[in-house]
């Protein structure tokens, strides 16, 4: 089976984000960038499916030339080849979904696997929009994926617990945290990744207009929280809640 899996370049979660002074975005200069952790899980699942069923895993990312590093990271884990859609600046989930759709139409994979969301803006929209645009079934927030013949059975994490659904390929799956633990890239894997093909496209070449539908006006840091206070007894606490915090 052929799987198209997406990876997004995001800021390392160990880094405390800082808003640029003009509020136009966050500081990324000198900041370590990684593969979105949910996408890493998506890559791992794709590789497992390939190991079981044979086929090919194609990694897709959207971003500047630097994003090649994240594609190579997925290739080092074992994916077969990469596709980079070159785009400067922010690409909103809708534009991303339409770009992925365009690549889908070229590649005709059996399955598209995405992370359930990216840890930078936490939108959790691209997978759902993509399925909609393609008119394909979707199974989001997957915590288990099984493939038998043409049928994909997915266990989803939903508010009430777990739900199991199935669909016939092609379709779209988004990966949740508990789906698997991504493997380490092996060192020989990293060295081989350098030789794997990464094709580049522009949005124009794919016929997609990526002008954002959602405009970000300004980012602001949340107000610093006031320091807590220790109170000697319940009476003082109630007094403070009533008079200072006006919570009672």
């Amino acid at each position: 089976m052929k799987i198209l899996v997406t990876v997004k370049r995001v800021m390392d979660y160990n880094v405390k984000p800082k808003v640029k002074p003009d509020g136009s975005g966050v500081v990324t200069d000198g900041v370590n960038m990684i593969v979105n952790p949910f996408d890493e899980i998506a890559v791992e699942e794709s590789l497992k499916l390939k190991e079981k069923n044979g086929g090919e895993v194609v990694v897709l990312s959207i971003g500047t030339k630097d994003t090649t590093t994240q594609i190579r990271a997925a290739l080092a884990m074992g994916a077969d080849r990469g596709i980079l859609v070159l785009a400067d600046g922010s690409v909103d989930p809708d534009a991303a979904a339409r770009l992925i759709k365009a690549v889908y139409e070229q590649e005709k994979p059996d399955l598209v696997v995405l992370g359930k969301q990216a840890i930078d803006d936490d939108s959790s929209q691209a997978g759902q929009l993509l399925a909609e645009y393609l008119g394909l079934p979707q199974a989001t927030f997957a915590s288990k994926v099984d493939v038998a013949g043409k049928t994909v059975t997915v266990t989803r994490e939903v508010d009430g617990g777990l739900e199991t659904i199935s669909f016939d390929m092609p379709g779209v799956v988004t990966a949740d945290l508990r789906l698997n633990t991504p493997r380490y890239a092996s060192l020989p894997g990293i060295m081989k990744a350098k030789k794997k093909e990464v094709k580049e496209f522009t949005p124009a070449a794919l016929g997609v207009d990526i002008a954002p539908k959602v405009k970000v006006l300004k980012l602001e840091e949340p107000k610093a929280r006031q320091a807590g206070q220790k109170v000697p007894d319940v009476a003082t606490l109630v007094g403070k809640l009533r008079n200072e915090a006006k919570a009672l």
Binding site: R72, Y184, A185, L187, I190, A193, K194
Partner: peptide, 14 residues
């Protein structure tokens, strides 16, 4: 090189 940095990162993560 980018490759050396990637290798370093992989071992550091390990």
């Amino acid at each position: 090189t980018a490759e050396q940095r990637a290798l370093f990162g992989a071992v550091a993560a390990f």
